[in-house]
Simulated assay, not measured.
Amino acid sequence: MSKLRVAAFTLSIDGFGAGSDQDLTNPLGVGGEALHTWMVGTRTFHKMVGKDGGTTDTDEAFAARSFDNVGAWILGRNMFGPIRGEWPDESWKGWWGDNPPYHVPVFVLTHHARDPIVMEGGTTFHFVTDGIHSALEQAKAAAEGKDVRIGGGVATIQQYLREKLIDNMHLAISPMLLGSGENLFAGIDMVRLGYRCTEQVATPNAMHVIIERA
């Protein structure tokens, strides 16, 4: 049965999933890229960016596990790029170059319509203007029984959490403070929504926690 998952989503100790002031230079906001130290050394990440090698430790196990059985993704518009408002043209096609790391259909939440973008490696970006439920319905159909993974950002995850639609989350808590940015749990009562922590594993670069809906 298809599940809606968050996986390998990194937070600072103070709960921020991205820094402030996202732009072309700082796609994850100021200081945000440092959150992902646990991931960038892994074999999975090296493969994503076309490099050989990488670690085969616990961080790698969680990184690899995040891609298991994923048949489609959902992204908020900020995860697709820094452009706000109407699309000025068709030139922006994401942060990742011609061959993004998804390799399955990706559904981007936006208020502004745009034709699908077919990329190399099996990724097609679809732009959904009629809300999170429509995006999930389309993603599940495209996933053909596999899971749907929410890539972020924080606001997108919060929307699905509030509707109790996320089945499980893997969060990697990075041992650093950001101080400002987008706080995942701001205004979210996870206990009231029925979520609980079912697994925790510490590594030098992260505390990996699994949170599931009861």
Rank of each mutant, 00 (worst) to 15 (best):
N168Q: 14
F125I: 03
L184C: 01
M190N: 05
P175N: 07
N168T: 10
A186R: 14
V118W: 13
D167S: 07
M190S: 11
V148H: 04
Q158E: 05
F185K: 12
V191L: 15
G179N: 06
R162D: 00
V191R: 15
I188F: 06
A172S: 12
I117P: 09
H170V: 10
D130Q: 12
A143I: 09
T123E: 09
L184A: 06
L171V: 00
I132A: 15
Q158L: 08
I150M: 12
G151C: 05
S180F: 06
K146I: 09
T129M: 01
D189M: 11
M176S: 03
T123H: 05
K140A: 09
E144H: 14
E144F: 09
M190G: 06
E163R: 15
A172N: 11
Q138G: 02
G122L: 13
M119I: 03
T123A: 06
I166S: 00
S174T: 09
Q159H: 11
T129L: 03
D167I: 04
G187F: 01
G179I: 08
E144R: 15
V148W: 04
M119S: 07
K140H: 15
A172L: 07
G151Y: 08
G122F: 08
N168V: 08
E182H: 15
L161S: 04
S180E: 10
E137Y: 12
I173E: 02
V154A: 06
D167Q: 06
K146Y: 13
G153P: 06
I173P: 02
I166Y: 01
I166D: 01
I150N: 07
L193G: 01
A135S: 12
T124P: 07
R162C: 02
